[in-house]
Design a binder for these strands. Sequence first.
DNA 1: CTGAAAGCGCTTACAG
DNA 2: CTGAAAGCGCTTACAG
Lengths: 364, 364
Amino acid sequence: MVKKTVLKPRAARSTAGGADVAVPSTGKHTINDIARLANVSKKTVSRVINQSPFVREETRARISEIMRRVGYTPDPQARGLAFRRSFLMGLVYDNPNAQYVINIQEGALGALRRNGYELVVHPCDRTSEDFLPEIEQLVTRQKLDGVILLPPVSENDELAALLKRLKCHYVRVISVPLDEPENLVLSMDRQSAAQVAEHLARLGHTRIAMIVGPSTYRSSQERLIGFSNALGDRGLTLPPEFVVEGAYNFESGVACAELLLSRSPRPTAIFAGNDETAAGVYRTAYLRGLKIPDDLTVVGFDDSPLASRLCPSLTTMRQPIRDMGRLAAERLMAKAAKVQGPPLSASTVFPHLVVRESSGPPRI
Amino acid sequence: MVKKTVLKPRAARSTAGGADVAVPSTGKHTINDIARLANVSKKTVSRVINQSPFVREETRARISEIMRRVGYTPDPQARGLAFRRSFLMGLVYDNPNAQYVINIQEGALGALRRNGYELVVHPCDRTSEDFLPEIEQLVTRQKLDGVILLPPVSENDELAALLKRLKCHYVRVISVPLDEPENLVLSMDRQSAAQVAEHLARLGHTRIAMIVGPSTYRSSQERLIGFSNALGDRGLTLPPEFVVEGAYNFESGVACAELLLSRSPRPTAIFAGNDETAAGVYRTAYLRGLKIPDDLTVVGFDDSPLASRLCPSLTTMRQPIRDMGRLAAERLMAKAAKVQGPPLSASTVFPHLVVRESSGPPRI
DNA sequence: CTGAAAGCGCTTACAG
DNA sequence: CTGAAAGCGCTTACAG
């Protein structure tokens, strides 16, 4: 029995009628084709697609088999139009560490694609006038089902407020719980910095300096507090003249190291805010003829590819960045699916110290 | 006069009827709202959206003004469904150089977003079984309007054939014209390598070695040919024992340098296949106590962030990567818009040498 | 130059 | 458990 079609198709469909439809042809099948093949209404096919419980098991199995056989996948555009969603997630970032972004991207995509989502990327510039409008446009135009926010822009509360207003799900990858736990993937920067402190204390350093990131970043503060407190716990101090503010980049690392190494007595160990900064410290040491780690111990943060490329290789903190991307994606999908489970707690992620050649006992 | 609505809206629209509609409310306007406001049919609004010439100038101006005032942008999903396209471009890559990918991404996005497109990213693995099926799924499911292929996967002809079969526009960023010119953004690797040869010859080196990339990559061959020929032009040779094959990564750089530096006499200059490989050479030199550039000149390729971070900083070839991303995007949009202009020639992009500290005259 | 109708491929009410 | 109708927001023929 063939259902009658109310609206005749605009053009002849390549889809065969009922007889020999075994080949998973390249041609696109629609929900109507599947319905016809299965001798049910498109609504029932729709129910199978959306895993509705209100389909007889036998029916579901038969329809599923047909979908599999002809290689049918529902059109996300049409679904999206009807659902008022897009099956698209966004990644909003302004982090200059390319490897960090790529790793998050790939971690997120691994989870996303498995569930029929794709990822749209949006690099941004917080200092731009169009910063928020651009994101608003992206979210509303594309009806994004959710966005992942990477540090440092993840610390921006205006952005979070905007997304809330737009009723757009989001997850902040961040080092401070600035939001409801369910919106967070937390990296434990404070505890990380404490691990560095412990490492340096164990090596026997007493004149320890730190280059912190921009004071406007919460992660900078977290790392400073964690580092300072942990040193204190071990009877060591971080004197003010041994703390300078950098910008999480190479150039500031050079300049800050210059400052620190001209103190007298100079520090025997420097905890750079991140690997980029550490590379800057390397450069200053190189120019001054200081040997690492004999004359100076250096520790970074991130374990970017740079860390193992530098000579000597850099001791640093490694974050499970891909995992963070995956966790953020999973969290977002849970929200988008509206699975009203118990309120989620924050995903927490633990870095660990990678000891390489740049840290050793003081020789003075 | 108010047009009568044939289908009553499912829910009351927040849009005000005709009186006080000045505020660009957050609520989504549709083409119907604009039509009502302008007192024309939705088809006419559609014509304005699509810049059809068949609209009286006065009408167009009035409708445009209304769209601007209420902040209307057409829904890409609905447009896409009707147009059978998505206003989405894809970026397919397997290049391990994160900074390269990010720069392409941002270059492309700059051009794309201006024209209402977004970018969907797709990292891939040529050695995976699902490599091609995954891309096919991405392209057909999302109805991608085009994809950008980055090296080395851009050299894969099966992938290009697949995209052709799917009638999906693509642009290959590549160093060899493996395709019709209109599908290419060409980086001139051969000429680039020649510049390196010239630099080394000028410095007075005669025992020059090269670490080439995987022989399966066309770019490796290009760089080798370009380098070798250019040396020949200057009366120099690249003896077989001074050419070793690496893998464009750090580890192989270490190993290959080991090999090269154990030759006797050893080379006074090494052209590493890329910056990663050059970093490997640095490490071997470091372990052997060789000073760069006094004992050994090293030149890289890419000008990745690493190049300026190494000590001494690395002389290398810089490619205008962002421009390449932009060019690829522009080319793709031209195709998607079906502007039947004269057949396009390949976009060609020229790298240049960045001389830093790692290259100097031989001291032997 | 402008519009009414049918359609893109899916879903949400609403019935049975 | 299943289906016919109306709708998501836009466009393509086809008329005038």
